[in-house]
Write a protein that binds this DNA or RNA. Sequence first.
DNA 1: CAGCATCCCCTTTGATACTG
DNA 2: CAGTATCAAAGGGGATGCTG
Lengths: 108, 108
Amino acid sequence: MDRKDRVTECPVAYALNLIGGKWHLQIIWALYKKPVQRYNELKRRVDGITNMMLSQSLKELEQYGLVTRTQYPEIPPRVEYSLTEEGQVLIPFIRELSKWGAKQMSKS
Amino acid sequence: MDRKDRVTECPVAYALNLIGGKWHLQIIWALYKKPVQRYNELKRRVDGITNMMLSQSLKELEQYGLVTRTQYPEIPPRVEYSLTEEGQVLIPFIRELSKWGAKQMSKS
DNA sequence: CAGCATCCCCTTTGATACTG
DNA sequence: CAGTATCAAAGGGGATGCTG
């Protein structure tokens, strides 16, 4: 049971559980910039992420219905990830957050 | 040196450092619902928060310029907190997050 | 290629008690 | 009233190595 499964009545707390982690928004943003990506491609784009965190994050994001995973039964294996419509809803949100963050950074 | 002082180039990560914690948004929301509040009043409204987390969070929020602290030199001491304009900017943002979170909650 | 298992650390969070 | 100090706990995050 990870933290996202904990019961919360507050929608804001719930939302932060889904996307407040260290990597989720970065992964979503990477998938926005290039809509279809394979595992290792993603790993190269999300700076500093480890296999552990990437696969774990992707699994969670898939569970929440923000990311789709498509596996092709080939050798070597090919797995492609992309944003669902629900995931794309977050894009303007990330933009706002980025603008606000940049403004705060410049102030101090 | 707390986590908010760590260097980050990414504005989104920076923003999450400021408001991604467990209590910051709840405190801001409480201060929005009642714009001027004393310490213990806030503590009662933010469900489950301890003195440690409340005083620490308030200190951080004040540093970031999101909250103002006004101390009156009286006995017993009186300290009032309220949102700055910068802090109020976050209100529509929290509303959106809440809407999105509620939708996600209802799906699973 | 795409990922999982294991081990470990350290930061965040919490409980409790105390002070000007 | 408005906090601070101290100690303890939990779990998120990371490094490394292994597998189908």
